[in-house]
Amino acid sequence: MKDQMPQAVLAPPWKLQVEGVAKRFVTRTRALAALAPVSFQVREGEILCLVGPSGCGKSTTLNIIAGLERPDSGVVRTDGHLVGEPGPDRMVLFQEPALFPWLTVLGNVLFGLKLKPCLSRVERLAAARFYLKLVGLEGFERASVHELSGGMKQRVALARALAPEPELLLMDEPFTALDALTREQLYGDLQAIFAHHRKTVVFVTHNVREAVCLGDRVLLFSPRPGSIREEFLVSLPRPREINNVQLTELAARITRALKLHMGPDAKEVPA
């Protein structure tokens, strides 16, 4: 009988499984359902983009995967194992660079590496330098954080997140605070990095073009409480140019779908 087949044969090798995860925030004045039960899976090496209007629970989803927040119901698994406390197997890139101003650029990248007990001092230093070079910041090792531009800070944050070689990279609108030019440059660089160092990524954004430019797959969230409404596969060849015609067409299609899900009275239209 077919349904009696062992699980291992049937199930694809999911790197990340989010199963029925829901979250309510209870404050002094009100209870707010941020996330309706949400389920999705991510394959090894896949870049999944979560797109939705602001306040729909995208960050909440990411925080739950990271272990920074506990779901009210549902579970998150990486490689089939339940996720608990935050840990260096799931690194997060926040909207703010969140670098430590009391450390140098190199010190920041070393921070996560020092928490990996298996590495020697020399190996840590080599890894930090390697990833700083990868994000294009060779020679800035000794700089203070405040000496860097916004884009450079986000690059350091990327190096810091990549250096401990996490199983999963979680990115929460990491480019939103940057100017358009810097952002476009980073789209290119990020794709180049992922082309050689494939990562499993969950990328949250409210920018549909960004999602189409970077993602293998795009999930559309409904307004709060967030739930998944639609899924789009992006099979455009890489590297993708943000102003590419096909990319623009697909982005327009997704934007139309997004507006539809937001309903006629929706005021906030994502870019």
Binding site: A66, L68, P88
Partner: peptide, 25 residues
């Protein structure tokens, strides 16, 4: 709080968090 969140995702907790993040911050 962003410092603490960033540090926690890198696996820093308890005494390490106090010595290497909270105190210098």
């Amino acid at each position: 709080p962003i410092y603490l969140r960033a540090a926690r995702t890198m696996g820093s907790k308890k005494l390490h968090l106090w010595i290497h993040v909270i105190a210098p911050a």
